[in-house]
C-alpha cells in the first residue's frame, strides 16, 4: 500500500498554503463552488490530493486553473481553511515546474512588456483623448525609469523565467 507523501504539504506550506492540513473533507467548498457546477474542478478533491501528496494529479491538469478565486469556498469553510491561498500556492508550484497554459503566458508577457496586464493600443489612446484624458495614462507606461524599476523586480524575483 502506498503511503502519503507529506513532503508535498511542506512544499505547499512554503508557498503560504500550510493550512491545507486542516481540511477534514466535509465538501462545503465543492458545494459552494460556482466553477464546480460548470466544470470538472472539485475543490475538496484538490485539497485531498494536496494532503496525500498526489502532486502530479493536483498540479498537472486543467482543473487547478478553473478556479476564478471567488472565495465562496473560503468564506464558508467550517475549518477556516484559506482555500484560495492553497489554490494560489498550488499554481505557484505548477508554474515553477513548467505547467503553464499559453494564454496565461500571454498575460505574464503583458506585465513584462507594458507593466500592465493588458496592452495599450491606438483605439484606447483615441478614446482617452476624446474623453479629455492624457493619451497615455500616468503610470509606468509614461515613465521609462519607473518601467525599468518594475523590470528589475520581475528579474530579481524570477518572473523573467516564465515569460518571453
Amino acid at each position: 500500500m502506498a503511503s502519503p507523501n507529506t513532503e508535498f504539504m511542506d512544499e505547499i506550506a512554503a508557498y503560504g498554503g500550510g493550512e491545507v492540513k486542516m481540511c477534514f473533507q466535509c465538501g462545503t467548498c465543492t458545494a459552494s463552488c460556482p466553477s464546480g457546477k460548470l466544470t470538472s474542478y472539485r475543490t475538496r478533491k484538490l485539497m485531498r490530493q494536496a494532503q496525500l501528496g498526489l502532486k502530479e494529479e493536483a498540479i498537472g491538469g486543467e482543473d487547478l486553473w478553473q478556479c476564478t478565486t471567488c472565495y465562496a469556498c473560503q468564506e464558508r469553510c467550517p475549518r477556516g481553511v484559506p482555500v484560495v491561498d492553497i489554490v494560489i500556492a498550488l499554481r505557484n508550484i505548477a508554474v515553477a515546474e513548467g505547467h503553464m497554459f499559453e494564454a496565461h503566458k500571454k498575460t505574464a508577457d503583458a506585465l513584462s512588456k507594458y507593466g500592465h496586464a493588458v496592452s495599450i493600443n491606438d483605439k484606447v489612446k483615441k478614446d482617452r483623448k476624446d474623453l479629455g484624458l492624457p493619451e497615455i495614462p500616468p503610470t509606468v507606461l509614461a515613465n521609462p525609469k519607473a518601467k525599468q524599476d518594475l523590470d528589475k523586480i520581475l528579474t530579481i524575483t524570477g518572473f523573467d523565467k516564465i515569460t518571453g
Binding site: 494560489i88 508554474v95 498575460t107 505574464a108 500592465h116 500616468p138 519607473a146 520581475l154
Partner: peptide, 28 residues
C-alpha cells in the same frame, strides 16, 4: 495623480504565477 504605478499586480494570475513577484511589485 498616482504616478509611475504598475499593474497591482493581478491577484488571480500574477499572484498565481509567482507570489514573490506579486508581493514585491505590489509593495512598490
Amino acid at each position: 495623480e498616482f504616478e509611475d504605478a504598475s499593474c497591482c499586480p493581478a491577484p488571480g494570475v500574477i499572484r498565481a504565477f509567482n507570489k514573490k513577484t506579486w508581493l514585491a511589485a505590489a509593495a512598490r
